[in-house]
Simulated assay, not measured.
Amino acid sequence: MSIKLGVIGGGVMGCAIVSRLLAQGTYQSTDILISEPTLSQRELLQQEYGVQVTDDNNLAAMAPVLLLAIKPQVFDKVVADLSQINPAQLVISILAGVSIAQLERAFPVGEASQNENRAVVRAMPNTPATVGMGITAISVGTYVRAEQLDVATQIFQAVGEVVTVPESLMDAVTGLSGSGPAYVAIAIEALADGGVAAGLPRQIADRLALQTVLGTATLLKESHLHPAQLKDRVTSPGGTTIAGVAKLEQAGFRSALIEAVVAAANRSQELGK
Rank of each mutant, 00 (worst) to 15 (best):
S2T: 15
S2L: 09
L5M: 13
V7H: 01
G11T: 14
G11V: 11
V12P: 00
M13P: 10
C15A: 12
V18W: 01
G25K: 07
T30D: 11
T30E: 12
D31S: 07
I32W: 08
E36W: 12
T38W: 11
L39A: 13
E43T: 13
L44Q: 12
Q46A: 15
E48F: 03
Y49D: 00
A61I: 05
A61F: 03
V65R: 01
L66W: 13
L68E: 02
V74L: 08
D76V: 07
V78F: 02
V78N: 01
S83L: 01
Q84I: 10
G97P: 02
Q102F: 03
Q102E: 09
E104N: 04
F107Y: 08
G110I: 09
G110F: 02
G110R: 06
A112F: 05
S113L: 14
E116T: 12
R118Q: 08
V121A: 13
R122C: 07
P125D: 00
P128G: 09
A129S: 15
A137R: 13
A137W: 10
V140W: 02
G141R: 12
T142Y: 09
V144C: 14
V144P: 02
R145L: 15
A146C: 03
L149W: 08
Q157C: 09
A158I: 03
E161W: 01
V163L: 07
T164F: 10
V165F: 08
P166V: 11
L169G: 07
G175A: 14
L176G: 12
S177D: 06
S177H: 10
G180F: 07
Y183S: 12
V184H: 02
I186Q: 05
A187C: 14
A187R: 03
I188A: 08
A190K: 10
G194I: 09
G194W: 07
A197P: 05
A197Q: 14
A198N: 06
D206L: 13
L208S: 06
L208H: 06
A209K: 07
T212N: 00
T212W: 00
L214Q: 14
L214H: 13
G215S: 10
L225V: 02
K231G: 03
D232N: 14
T235I: 08
G239V: 10
T240K: 00
T241N: 05
A246N: 14
K247I: 12
A251I: 00
F253K: 05
F253T: 12
R254E: 03
S255W: 03
A256W: 11
I258P: 09
I258C: 10
A260V: 09
V261R: 05
A264F: 03
A265G: 12
A265D: 07
S268F: 06
Q269D: 06
E270Y: 01
L271K: 04
G272C: 04
